[in-house]
């Protein structure tokens, strides 16, 4: 069976000067959670917005293939794409405080999604909204429907956003750092909620995050992005057990693991920042920050397979980690 969302060779440029996404590929399987990780500025959010065709006006996207449920998205008109958004594919954002319209009640903003995509009465749409507010763990949903966004906390607003995304029973939910702006206890609740929804509704989730702890808990598959490219992609267990790309290894070294990291031992860090890449850039974008870089890193980089569903983009051979450890 083909994946629900197939992205191949996605490129996004802004104004011809900055290339934010440079040939990224990923596939989100039905009913699974696919995590997109990387530092800020790697092109994760831009990739997601490009898939939804929600880029700002200056953003230009191209791709070798962009398909949802086997059907091409690239050739769709704006109207046809809008018919799909909010219906079969939904998206929630990093900023729950500002993502709801301050001028309308929670109920009216939720109801309009269903009324846009289905022939239902306002009453029925509100009933559905109340049911979903209950489903995402909001007490007294009837009262919440009549409230305005400013009357809700950040955690509640993000729950409302999630419930609103579920109004039409989508097959795919793209969640762009949905917990970053929330405090830690609320983060955990939201993640548990997303995991539960996926299990119960068979929802496919593309979760964008920079938190590897989140990835370890919820992801089936992980794609690591760096400077607009997917540098490593693997099933979660395989990625954490055998990370191959030096960038992935660097990211994992930044995460403290209780019992493995001693108090006096410094945490790992990756020197430098993500470079801004202009069109025409060749070779590995990570080479200036990489301990293993040599002259060949400026040439075209091969993609190596490193196991079932596991590949990475590096000049190093697939078994370089073991080879280095052996002598």
């Amino acid at each position: 069976m083909t994946a629900l969302l197939e992205v191949e060779g996605l490129r996004v440029a802004f104004g011809g000067r900055i290339e934010a996404v440079r040939g990224a590929s990923l596939a989100v399987a039905r009913g699974q959670t696919h995590c997109l990780v990387g530092e800020s500025g790697c092109g994760k959010s831009v990739s997601a917005l490009a898939v939804m065709n929600l880029l700002a006006r200056r953003g230009r996207r191209t791709a070798d293939r962009l398909a949802f449920d086997g059907a091409d998205l690239l050739g769709l008109s704006d109207t046809a794409m809008a018919r799909l958004r909010g219906d079969r594919m939904a998206m929630i954002f990093q900023e729950p405080m500002t993502s709801l319209n301050p001028a309308y009640t929670v109920g009216s903003q939720m109801a309009e999604v269903l009324r846009r995509h289905r022939k239902v009465t306002r009453r029925a749409a509100l009933d559905r909204a109340a049911e979903l507010l209950g489903r995402v763990g909001i007490t007294a949903p009837g009262m919440r429907l009549g409230q305005f966004p400013h009357q809700l906390s950040g955690g509640l607003r993000q729950r409302v956003m999630i419930a609103m995304a579920l109004m039409c029973d989508p097959e795919l939910l793209i969640a762009d750092e949905p917990t970053t702006a929330l405090d830690v206890t609320v983060q955990a609740q939201i993640l548990r909620l997303l995991a539960g929804l996926q299990r119960d509704l068979g929802l496919a989730i593309l979760l964008i995050t920079h938190d590897l702890g989140v990835v370890a808990r919820v992801a089936h598959h992980v794609s690591v992005m760096y400077a607009g490219e997917v540098v490593e992609s693997a099933p979660t267990a395989s990625l954490f057990a055998n990370p191959r790309h030096p960038y992935t290894r660097g990211l994992l070294a930044c995460v403290p693991v209780p019992g493995k990291v001693r108090r006096d031992q410094p945490l790992g860090s990756i020197p430098g920042v993500v470079p801004r890449v202009e069109p025409g850039f060749a070779g590995c974008a990570f080479r200036d920050r990489c301990a293993h870089a040599d002259a060949t890193c400026a040439a075209a980089i091969p993609r190596h397979a490193a196991g079932e569903g596991h590949d990475f983009l590096c000049r190093l051979p697939p078994d370089w980690v073991q080879a280095e450890a052996a002598p």
């Binding site: 954002f93 900023e95 609103m164």
Partner: peptide, 26 residues
């Protein structure tokens, strides 16, 4: 340019609804 307009677009609302209902109201 606001986040709630991005949300309205993500909901697949029509252009008229985005402009006249969500943006103009504010």
């Amino acid at each position: 340019a606001s986040d709630y307009i991005r949300t309205a677009r993500a909901k697949g609302l029509s252009r008229a609804s985005i402009l006249l209902k969500h943006a103009l109201r504010n």
